[in-house]
Simulated assay, not measured.
Amino acid sequence: MAASDTALRLTDRAGAQAFVQGLLTVMRDLEAALARESEGVRAGRIAEAMTGTPAKAELAAAYMTGLEAAKANAIALARFAPEGLEALKAAQTRFAAVLEVNQQVLATARTVSEGLIKALAEEVAKTRTASVYGRPSHSPSPYGRGGANSGPLVFSRNL
């Protein structure tokens, strides 16, 4: 599917069937890429899961272009390839389910990582705050910096 597919006009059965098969192939490949990404993130192999991002972006662009062409040729598809149109509808339903799972996995990973960073920052702040008679206290600093905010939080992205 190239960018010129948005100007595609289906005028015969063979062209409609070829278009449907091409779009179904793109959808199947995009589903597989999303499923691999979801499984990698679930398993904690985030760097490995994200290696397919460029290919996924190309497939997503081809999918969007194909959808636009399908919308523009809806009447021709219904006329020349009604069984292909039904196959596209069924594939779209499957694709939506895979996409929803992928989005849930990514949202969960984002929430967990944000929680870990927040907990780490709080733990670091606790160790930097002195306690005098059971109350948190900040020692005076000749540099105007004191307390938990006196240094940067550093973490490794390679973990």
Rank of each mutant, 00 (worst) to 15 (best):
A74V: 08
V124W: 05
R135W: 10
A90Q: 02
R94E: 09
R135C: 03
A76C: 02
L116R: 07
L59S: 00
A107P: 05
R128H: 04
A61C: 10
P142S: 13
G151F: 15
Q92N: 07
E68S: 10
K56N: 00
R79N: 08
K56M: 04
T111S: 15
K71Q: 10
A148I: 00
A91D: 02
Q103S: 10
G151Y: 15
L67I: 06
K89N: 14
A91P: 05
G151V: 13
A61G: 08
G66W: 03
V98E: 14
A61V: 03
N102E: 03
P142H: 14
P82R: 00
V98Y: 09
G115N: 04
Q92V: 13
V132T: 09
S113K: 12
R94H: 08
V105G: 04
G147A: 00
S113W: 14
I117E: 10
A78V: 01
T129K: 00
A55N: 05
G52W: 05
G84H: 05
P142Y: 13
A47L: 09
A47V: 09
K71S: 06
A47E: 09
P142R: 15
G146P: 08
A47G: 04
V105F: 04
K126R: 08
N149H: 10
V98D: 12
A96Y: 04
A62D: 07
Y143T: 07
G52E: 01
G134W: 01
Y63I: 00
R135P: 07
P136N: 05
E122L: 13
P54I: 01
P82S: 03
G52H: 02
H138G: 07
A107H: 10
T65E: 03
M50E: 07
A148Q: 04
A107N: 12
H138Q: 15
L59H: 03
L77A: 01
E58W: 06
E58C: 08
A70Q: 02
A70Y: 05
T127I: 14
G144L: 00
A121Y: 07
N73F: 02
L99I: 09
Q103W: 06
G151M: 14
